[in-house]
Design a protein around this nucleic acid. Structure first.
Lengths: 196, 196
DNA sequence: CGAAAATTTGACATGACTCAACTGGAGTGG
DNA sequence: CCACTCCAGTTGAGTCATGTCAAATTTTCG
């Protein structure tokens, strides 16, 4: 039942049997259908959420009505809107499922209690956010310094599994370009155009 | 001596007198001149660093030799390359001073010891990184969804003090545009062009 | 004061966008 | 099982924002 999440946590901190017992007692499983929302713009993100199966996208809709995907989340990732979760304010993000998905969740209160009862989890989530922060800094640098073709290539290297699972226009949205542009880049790429 | 850093930490966690005592015993002050490096590409970031006075920039140099500023750090900010600090690998970043600067530092070992002796600091740094992560996600969205003029305007709103302190071409580098483009945007902006 | 750095301006190039049309599957319902 | 629709993907033409390169001007600072 909790294999995936325990394995994932076990990479950063070691839990005793009782701690595992206590931790898993907090967890709830939720199944979501493809296209179903986990969170809609205006909702408050109230649950910390771990993806045990499936794939979701987090995106913002801009003034012109266009979607901009800021993140894909697959198995073993945490997903959510950290700002909304922390502050209790309505989210600007939408999060929905690109496949039938299964998530594991617990509430903010439970998380706070967890921090008190098993302080190791402070460490776990610190490490987690640190990694997310590092990735996000790298992404900023990549957006600023590299042309779209190279970013597409990076994306393929970095998320080989996601590329198989989500349609190209979603990848375009993640890369910050239009589907038409991505289509043209793919043509160049296929025709063997070098990256530099 | 330690007013600034203690005040800054006090916004997130409360320390007892002994904890303050212990914490400050770890700290070292370092003074840097304008243009001096805090870190150069290839160095390993070994010290956690808090800016008590002055202003620094963190930037990467790309394949074409161009600088891309990923962050300005002023008073009361932490500065560094988290990836290099965590992994002990050489940094791709340069960090140098835009003004005469004073920083407060302590080592990774000391930080680990601090986590053990005063676990509240796990919490403190978790909160800190969470905020940094949120800011960095917002920046990604902003880069992807907004034209340069609007991003410039956002920058002015968000960092009114920095704008006074650093030359425009550095701001251009932070915004991910050329100095020439920024100059033209400023002209538009001054001539009252609306943002939308 | 004078040199170096920063900023501005002009002319031109280019990558990416928009809009519109077309192609080819995937899925649905009769 | 076929006809039909819908959606993703591709392609083309024209436009626009921003980049590049070079030069002129202004500011900064030793």
């Amino acid at each position: 039942m909790w294999n995936t999440i325990l394995k994932s946590i076990g990479r950063h901190i070691q839990l005793t049997a009782e701690e595992v017992e206590y931790f898993t007692s907090l967890l709830t499983v939720r199944k979501l259908r493809k296209r179903q929302y986990l969170l809609q713009e205006g909702d408050v993100m109230r649950l910390e959420t771990f993806v045990s199966k499936g794939c979701l996208r987090s995106y913002e809709i801009d003034a012109k009505g266009q979607e901009h995907i800021i993140q894909f989340s697959v198995e073993e990732w945490w997903v959510g809107d950290m700002y909304s979760f922390l502050t209790g304010t309505p989210s600007r993000l939408n999060i929905d499922c690109l496949e039938d998905t299964e998530v594991i969740q617990f509430s903010k209160d439970q998380l706070e209690e967890l921090y008190v009862r098993v302080p190791k989890f402070e460490r776990y989530f610190r490490l987690l956010v640190q990694n997310a922060y590092i990735a996000s800094q790298n992404r900023i640098l990549s957006i600023m310094t590299k042309p779209a073709l190279e970013r597409y290539h990076e994306f393929l290297q970095k998320y080989p599994t996601i590329e198989q699972r989500v349609p190209n226009h979603q990848i375009a949205s993640f890369l910050g370009i239009t589907p038409e542009s991505l289509s043209r880049l793919r043509k160049q790429y296929a025709s063997g155009k070098p990256l530099t």
